[in-house]
Design a protein around this nucleic acid. Structure first.
Ligand SMILES: [Mn+2]
Ligand SMILES: [Mn+2]
Ligand SMILES: [Zn+2]
Ligand SMILES: [Zn+2]
Lengths: 155, 155
DNA sequence: AATGATATTGATATTCATTTTCAATAAAAT
DNA sequence: ATTTTATTGAAAATGAATATCAATATCATT
């Protein structure tokens, strides 16, 4: 099933490249094949480390450049949380925001129409015209909370 | 009136320094005097540039260190928006979030209990225990919108 | 007021993520 | 096949922030 997604993404990228006079290289093909086969919030460094064994001789700069390209082409979104490392996620559904676990680093996506609506309202109250926003919750995921409780009990 | 705030902040810092075995230096005194006399979201670079003429020979590293110290002492808050530059604001009131103007860079503070409550709710739904959060709206402030409208009319 | 212990300073080097440079290479139009 | 030029990988450069270190200032103790 993943193979279809990858084919589609490659074709979407091809269209973008063509209209911009750019080229579809082996590196670009392989990076998107890998990136869209997993669903993660990858940093370039992480992606590079995982991809390196698969793509002989690939350079870090190429991964940086390709991820930027995917954003320009509308196939990926750039995110940046507290750790100050740029991450990329596949464009897959509607706008959403993130909860980030301080214990294990897990990133949970959530969407909430009410919160979005209230943001619009607050903006209007200040005569501010919103273009985009970021909302991040930092804390501990269910798994990490359970682990913490176990740890305390054992003392 | 500002002089009183500054005196109070200096005394708060003094208490913190004493209990930590640290020292109240001329540089620290002068930086807090300046920082608390303006109400802004200063980057270290900005603060350094403004302070340099007032404090002969002050070093950039000292400003970096002092701002960190103010955070540790609970007198300042660290913020970081899209431009990825660390900024500091005086602790002055309750928790709040920010709207940032993409035109002029103005930073508008706002607090909204309903949004905060909904965040708690969403977190609970995911069994996520929130510790902190950041919410930023990016867009155009009233002033910049007016300017833009004027520009279009003149064409 | 002088002393001594040590926290602090300013200059500079270093770090880390990311970007830029550039000569060699590969894509794709002819 | 040839030609044009976008792309690549390696290495250098960037920019914000931190670490290092010898000189200096603070401040508790004489
Ligand atoms: Mn949102
Ligand atoms: Mn908030
Ligand atoms: Zn976790
Ligand atoms: Zn503005």
């Amino acid at each position: 099933m993943n193979i279809n997604i990858i084919k589609r993404k490659e074709s979407e990228l091809t269209h973008y490249l063509r209209e911009k006079g750019l080229r579809l290289t082996q590196q670009r093909k392989q990076i998107i094949a890998y990136f869209f086969s997993k669903y993660k919030h990858y940093s370039v460094e992480e992606l590079y480390e995982e991809i390196k064994p698969q793509i002989a001789g690939i350079g870090l700069a190429t991964v940086y450049r390709t991820m930027q390209l995917l954003v320009e082409a509308g196939l990926a979104l750039q995110r940046r949380f507290k750790d100050n490392i740029t991450r990329y996620e596949p464009v897959h559904k509607n706008h959403h925001d993130h909860m980030i676990c301080l214990g294990c680093g897990e990133i949970i996506e959530f969407g909430n129409k009410k919160i979005e609506a209230m943001q619009e309202e607050v903006a209007k109250r200040h005569k501010f015209v919103p273009v985009s926003h970021t909302l991040q919750l930092y804390g501990y995921c269910a798994k990490c909370m359970a682990k913490q409780r176990r740890g305390k009990r054992e003392k």
